[in-house]
Design a protein around this nucleic acid. Structure first.
Length: 234
DNA sequence: AAGATAGTCAACCGCACACGC
DNA sequence: TGCGTGTGCGGTTGACTATCT
């Protein structure tokens, strides 16, 4: 493609929040054709978005199996535990929290957990009590969390409904390119395989958690047992 | 009631890496 | 081997919302 037309395209690309209509288009396209090339997909999908933007929206928001809403105490503890071991390796941490995205975990860390750890002399379980006193203001996801799944806003909710709706015939098991390509996006753990430190990470991750509870393998099964998403392809 | 301030989170940006040619 | 392209990741930003004064 010529440089001139590329720059024109760049100028016409939409930025900012996604509309429900855009969400619908992206989901519909992916369900029909699968994920084959983010930068090329946007146009035939009818979206004036960059490939990056589409990918981000899908991975963090529209993908089936995304868990929205408040973090549970177990999830919080898992994040804290893993962050102690791994640092800001959000994608690795996300791989241990089925249904949570690295972006969401990162945000949650910066907005909730990090400040709790300022009280770094206390145990993780005590952090949950401290948060009550400390924040005083908003109590959104802090303590005694309900198993909330309620999305933050109406747009989110519509996106999720759409996603779930589409997921019934979900990620393409047939079609021109999909299966092999899509596998790449099914699990964050797969992305670790290529890492030179995979072994190292795995050994770290396989150490028992005090707080991890039921959050890993079992839930993977549950999450990815959604229609149209095979656990094996994860 | 209205403005100021703080908190939250979706989305963007830039960089690094993998891969194909 | 070097280059171009696509993708993934982590840091950061900015709009929106909640709370305070």
């Amino acid at each position: 493609m010529a440089k001139a037309s590329q720059s024109v395209e760049k100028r016409t690309l939409r930025k900012g929040s996604w509309s429900p209509d855009e969400d619908r288009k992206l989901i519909a396209y992916i369900n029909r054709h699968g994920i084959w090339n983010w930068t090329e997909m946007a146009k035939p999908a009818g979206l004036q978005r960059s490939g990056k933007s589409c990918r981000l929206r899908w991975v963090n928001y529209l993908r089936p199996g995304i868990k929205r809403g408040n973090f549970t105490r177990e999830e919080d503890e898992t994040i804290i535990e893993l962050h102690e071991r791994l640092g800001n390796r959000w994608s690795v941490i996300a791989s241990r929290l089925p249904g949570r995205t690295d972006n969401e975990i990162k945000n949650h860390w910066h907005t909730h957990l990090r400040k709790r750890l300022k009280y770094n002399s206390v145990s993780t379980s005590e952090l949950f009590q401290i948060s009550n006193v400390e924040t005083g203001k908003k109590s959104s996801s802090e303590v005694d969390l309900p198993p909330a799944i309620a999305p933050a806003n109406s747009e989110s909710s519509s996106a999720i409904q759409l996603s779930q709706q589409f997921s019934t015939d979900s990620l393409p098991s047939s079609g021109s390119k999909p299966a092999a390509e899509i596998d790449r996006y099914q699990t964050t753990e797969d992305t670790l395989v290529s890492s030179e430190t995979f072994g190292e990470l795995q050994s770290i991750l396989e150490q028992p958690f005090t707080a991890e509870g039921s959050s890993t393998a079992d839930n993977y099964g549950a999450i990815y047992a959604e229609p149209g998403i095979s656990a094996t392809s994860c």
